[in-house]
């Protein structure tokens, strides 16, 4: 049995669980908007070879380029990739928490 002192010293005795769908949405939005903003910033800045490094993302995201069209393509890819990563992290976190409870 836990001592009174340890009970006194806790705000919450609950282990948080993550809503995977919500985390997917948040990560997806952050991923998509980040990629869109980064791309748009380079397009607006202009120059002879805008975004030569960011352009390398086209190795993974087919159709992506540092152009206005590419920014919207990147938005979709970012949403998908970020969302998938968030969903996976959420599901795996909950699975580990459940496993540790048993």
């Amino acid at each position: 049995m836990e001592s009174r002192a340890s009970q006194q010293d806790e705000v919450s005795r609950t282990i948080a669980r993550v809503k995977a769908d919500a985390l997917a949405l948040v990560c997806g939005l952050i991923g998509g908007l980040s990629l869109f903003v980064m791309t748009a910033w380079l397009v607006l800045k202009g120059g002879p070879q805008p975004g030569q490094h960011l352009q390398l993302l086209s190795n993974f995201f087919v159709g992506y380029s540092v152009t206005w069209t590419g920014a919207f393509v990147g938005l979709l890819y970012g949403v998908f990739t970020g969302g998938a990563a968030g969903w996976l992290v959420g599901r795996m976190y909950n699975a580990v928490v459940d496993a540790r409870k048993k």
Partner: peptide
């Protein structure tokens, strides 16, 4: 509620 560091680390 506390976030489980081990679980988040694994994920």
């Amino acid at each position: 509620a506390r976030i489980d560091p081990l679980a988040l680390g694994v994920a």
